[in-house]
Design a protein around this nucleic acid. Structure first.
Lengths: 266, 266
DNA sequence: CGATTTGTTGACTCTAATCAAGCGTAGTGG
DNA sequence: CCACTACGCTTGATTAGAGTCAACAAATCG
């Protein structure tokens, strides 16, 4: 293993490109999916795009609305075990993905040996929406996950016929852009602020309230925030000492004082 | 003035919202623009989206191709003096913008009094493409600039009729997303790496080669990289001492050894 | 149950922030 | 035209904060 905390389990059989038939041999068992009312939102009308606020995480489910309906139907579900690669950093971007259950991280290896995590994706989130024909990040399952895998060419074909598909892709990308921009701000702050911001971010994305179940280990948080695992651990301990949060086992964190967190994040 | 290096020149007459006629009273003098062949790219066909590589800055002009043609025509040019605000952080996002000449920064004020710069925009670049109906960053002219100002509602109307417009917006946003993602990586590295990465980034974006004319002052670079002005200055001095770069006046920097910079950036 | 991974804590180091002068150029007015 | 001022930039000394190395504790897995 090259560096601490990294996984490179290259499971060849999971690579998605080029099955003989042109269609991946995934079990098409159409499970209902965990997210509520998939397909219920039909095609968004034109004007309301700009009214889909993400902003301060006040609408945690905003990203889950778009690209439902038709696109959902052309995908196939696939299971990925913990720490297995969904796609590699330089693989052709032939598919787009949607998390049905579990959690996914996208990451990149810096030549320094450090791993950087680009984003976390939770149930309902799309990922793999790349600009180029090659991925610039790799994607890995954090926990055992079920992923909806959608052929990009199918989406493209759909888009050629149905303009609303393009529109939905646009909305999706725009929201992601907004999120990444906001996210970038985290990294210019101190360790306490980064951790505080991260906790708020995650809390705003899960439907449940106070008790936040983080699906990722400390190392992932560290690599996401550009900190070391030690600093993350220490900071969490500090926050717990100040009873801003409470640690209930390593993955379960209760936010006892969001205002204090927001103030820190400021 | 609140903090060092900040400008908040709120020139009311420059605010873009709500002129009585519904059209801003900008001089419609259709200057040819500085970028070559604006409008020459017509409407991009469907498939080639994914072949528009940005990747390692090998195609610095990639972002300048899209959204030409029809959309260009519905905009009006407007001049902004150095350090004036183009739009504010919470203003309604009624317009989108394209840099014709000059340079623009988008920024945000953190409650700590620090200013964070989100991005720099150079001639040919679009900015103000927000997801929500309100801007989350403000935009300011770094130098005296000419900006193409386009009513968002006009774009929306166009998009309703012409599907290709949506497609172009999508491409534009996708490229921006890719860029921001890449950019985020810079901020997890050390000071030397950040500065090196920044220099390469800027160099890849201007058409000319070795001699890079940075349009922004040190403070802007610092706020962009999440460093202090002192650290930026010191780092540049160091790089110059190692003759990786050469400083010719504070804004003019020659890259003498790109390989070394890339290695640093890695 | 032992073995291995994952998380916490401590001591020390090193990098970048902070505080504080000093320099150089550009612009202004006598 | 030159002195004066202002601003942007550089440099130095010190400090705070995160990284590193190392040991240990806790949780998880087979």
């Amino acid at each position: 293993m090259v560096a601490r905390g990294g996984y490179r389990c290259i499971v060849e059989c999971m690579k998605l490109a080029m099955t003989p038939t042109g269609t991946p041999n995934y079990s098409e068992t159409a499970k209902a999916g965990t997210q509520p009312a998939a397909g219920a939102h039909a095609l968004t009308p034109l004007q309301p795009w700009y009214h889909t606020r993400t902003h301060n995480g006040t609408q945690p489910t905003a990203r889950k609305h778009a690209l439902t309906g038709s696109i959902q139907l052309i995908g196939a579900q696939k299971s990925f075990a913990r720490n297995t690669e969904i796609y590699g950093e330089t693989e052709p971007a032939d598919y787009i993905y949607k998390v049905v259950s579990g959690a996914v991280r996208t990451c990149k290896w810096l030549s320094s040996g450090r791993r950087q995590i680009g984003a976390f994706y939770l149930p309902g989130d799309f990922f793999g929406l790349a600009a180029s024909e090659e991925h610039t990040f790799s994607a890995e399952a954090i926990t055992d996950s079920t992923i909806l895998v959608i052929r990009r060419s199918a989406v493209t074909a759909l888009a050629a016929r149905d303009c609303n598909v393009v529109r939905q892709l646009y909305v999706l990308t725009t929201l992601e852009l907004e999120r990444v921009r906001e996210d970038r701000l985290l990294l210019v702050k101190g360790a306490r602020q980064r951790v505080a911001g991260f906790l708020l971010q995650m809390a705003s994305r899960v439907p449940g309230a106070k008790e936040s179940e983080l699906s990722m280990p400390r190392q992932d948080i560290a690599d996401y925030l550009g900190l070391t695992i030690e600093t993350v651990s220490r900071t969490l301990t500090q926050l717990a000492a100040a009873s801003v949060i409470a640690l209930r086992g390593s993955r379960r964190i209760e936010l006892r004082n969001r205002n204090a967190l927001s103030r820190l994040n400021g």
